[in-house]
């Protein structure tokens, strides 16, 4: 009798969650596969002419292949900021965890404050301008690094706490300097948490719209999220292209998720519970 109610409950959950969570995705795919006229009726229906590939080709051609440039920009931004973020966060997390003292405490406070307090927009532009980095890719990279750093430092220091101190002591006794100990011993051991950070932060940076909106304006520097927002106002009658674009830029995070599904899950939970 109990197992019977389990099955019923399971089927209801299956049906409801499919409708609530999957129908919007199906709608994206279906609309992206329709002709312009059919898509503008907003119907949830199988496309009369299945023209997904033509639509994607069309999206590429919009405004002189702006989407290609945007993909290059977004990839550059994501890869560079995530690499720098992870290395700097691991170094900070390691020392903050292993040492006590005035500076490490200050660093810990700084990280916590940065995690909670949202950054002030125009003063940040002012700082970037003073450094000559406003509207520059390098400036945007540094902004993303700073934004993701607090979360990553907490994640790393929590993980370093589980690595026995004897390990770095033994390496040091063998004559390895601090850099050798860190890059040769500690960083390889941080592998699981590094994978988590890479995946979670890549999705975050790739999907970021507000950051580039403020700190990297201009058509030359457009990121994929910016093109999506601009397409929305420019291709009003061409909903099929708009949705093909949504589909296109959702593919990279989705692929990352399919490959690293377990790590994302663990990382989000660890980071969130510790943070």
């Amino acid at each position: 009798m109990r197992s019977h109610s389990h099955i019923v409950r399971g089927l209801v959950a299956l049906a409801v969650s499919t409708i609530v969570f999957l129908v919007p995705f199906a709608f994206i795919v279906l609309t992206a596969s329709k002709t312009s006229a059919e898509a503008s009726r907003f119907e949830f229906s199988w496309p009369g002419d299945f023209v997904l590939l033509q639509n994607i080709a069309e999206v590429f051609k919009v405004r002189d292949f702006v989407i290609v440039r945007a993909f290059i920009n977004s990839t550059t931004l994501t890869v560079s900021s995530v690499v720098v973020m992870v290395v700097l966060a691991a170094m900070m997390g390691y020392v903050v965890q292993r040492r006590t003292g005035l500076f490490t405490n200050a660093a810990r406070m700084l990280v916590l404050a940065a995690l909670i307090v949202p950054s002030a927009v125009v003063p940040t532009i002012w700082v970037l301008q003073a450094l000559g980095l406003y509207k520059q890719m390098l400036g945007m990279i540094l902004i993303e690094v700073t934004g993701g750093l607090p979360f990553c430092v907490l994640l790393c220091s929590a993980f370093v706490a589980t690595i026995p101190r004897e390990l770095d002591e033994a390496a040091a006794l063998d004559g390895a300097g601090p850099l050798r100990v860190f890059f040769g011993v500690i960083l390889p051991l941080l592998r699981p948490v590094v994978v988590t950070m890479v995946v979670v932060q890549s999705v975050a940076v790739f999907n970021d719209f507000t950051g580039p909106l403020y700190f990297l304006p201009g058509d030359e520097n457009a990121t994929v999220q910016a093109t999506l927002f601009n397409f929305q106002s420019q291709t009003l009658s061409q909903w099929n292209l708009l949705f093909a674009d949504i589909l296109l830029i959702t593919v990279p995070p989705l692929v990352l998720y399919l490959f690293f599904n377990r790590q994302i899950v663990e990382g989000m939970v660890n980071g969130a519970v510790k943070g």
């Binding site: 390691y94 020392v95 292993r98 040492r99 700084l110 950054s119 002030a120 003063p123 040091a172 601090p178």
Partner: peptide
């Protein structure tokens, strides 16, 4: 073995792009 300068690059960025804008705001 745990040199403080390991905190410098990350901490420097946080000071430059978080503390300075927040304080001056």
């Amino acid at each position: 073995r745990y040199p403080l300068w390991f905190l410098l690059p990350g901490g420097g960025l946080l000071v430059l792009l978080f503390v300075v804008p927040t304080a001056t705001s």
